[in-house]
């Protein structure tokens, strides 16, 4: 198949960017999207041009490194699929494909399609951890967890922190990401220890990193490659109300 790529080229955060057109011919429809970009880059390097920078690591859809906008949608047209798991057969012959980086003030462009997602790390480090000892896996039944909670926590923990939710949101809100982390930990007994102020700390970091507020439009869940649901945001809000009440009552004493 032949495709016409329009790729966002930007030397660095300080430089202005623009869309450049590249044509690729005789692409096997069964290669992955990133392999197609590899072919483009090999071609660019052979022509002594600058290759397109894009993030990727595992290429198995579980690390959260890859991600950019394909035709205005984070991770492209396929539901519940990261860019690395997307294949060229999802497109048609002679398609125009527009590639842009994730757009958000909190995700400054490093180069081309690669953005700095350090803000997510800061949210995690402000509260997304447990203080219980890790080490060897404990005896399976030593801590009893209800099946419903275990399932829900598992669904929330599926978040790979790729940033698609921020890119999909009209407000560049990080609520889906933050709420997935909060839910995942607050549903499990190991997360209870820091549970009282985890959510307030993480929300404070989310705000100070310049992410917008959630206006409950649901765009994030619709585009999430791991199908993290809106229920996580509701759960974050519940936690937030409880933790606010708790800290208010504590300060009254």
């Amino acid at each position: 198949m032949n495709i016409n790529l329009k790729v966002w080229r930007q030397k660095s955060g300080e430089n202005k960017g623009l869309l450049k057109t590249y044509r690729l011919e005789n692409i096997d429809p069964n290669i992955s999207f990133l392999e197609m970009l590899d072919i483009l880059n090999i071609k660019l390097v052979k022509e002594k041009n600058d290759p397109v920078a894009f993030d990727h690591d595992c290429r198995e859809g579980i690390c959260g490194s890859c991600g950019f906008m394909i035709n205005g949608r984070p991770h492209g047209p396929q539901k519940a699929t990261t860019v690395c798991q997307l294949h060229m057969r999802a497109f048609n012959n002679e398609d125009d494909i527009i590639l842009e980086p994730f757009r958000a003030k909190s995700f400054p462009v490093i180069k081309d399609l690669s953005v700095n997602r350090k803000a997510f790390d800061k949210i995690i480090s402000s509260g997304g951890y447990v203080s219980t000892n890790t080490g060897e896996a404990p005896e399976a039944n030593s801590t009893i967890i209800e099946k419903e909670n275990a399932d829900e926590a598992f669904l929330s923990s599926a978040c790979i922190g790729c940033g698609a939710c921020v890119a999909a949101c009209k407000n560049s809100s990080a609520m889906l990401f933050t709420s997935a982390k909060v839910s995942h930990l607050s549903l499990l007994p190991q997360g209870k220890e820091e549970g009282k102020d985890r959510v307030t700390k993480m929300v404070a970091t989310m705000d100070s990193e310049g992410f917008g507020a959630c206006t409950n439009t649901g765009a994030c869940s619709a585009e999430c490659p791991k199908e993290i649901g809106q229920i996580n945001i509701a759960r974050l809000n519940q936690e937030y109300i409880l933790s606010s009440l708790f800290s208010f009552l504590k300060s009254r004493k």
Binding site: M69, R73, S172
Partner: peptide
């Protein structure tokens, strides 16, 4: 705040809101 957070530079996002 939301306006500031979204840096719109010639984005092709379709939006599904």
């Amino acid at each position: 705040k939301n306006r500031k957070a979204k840096k719109v530079i010639s984005s092709y996002s379709k939006g599904n809101t």
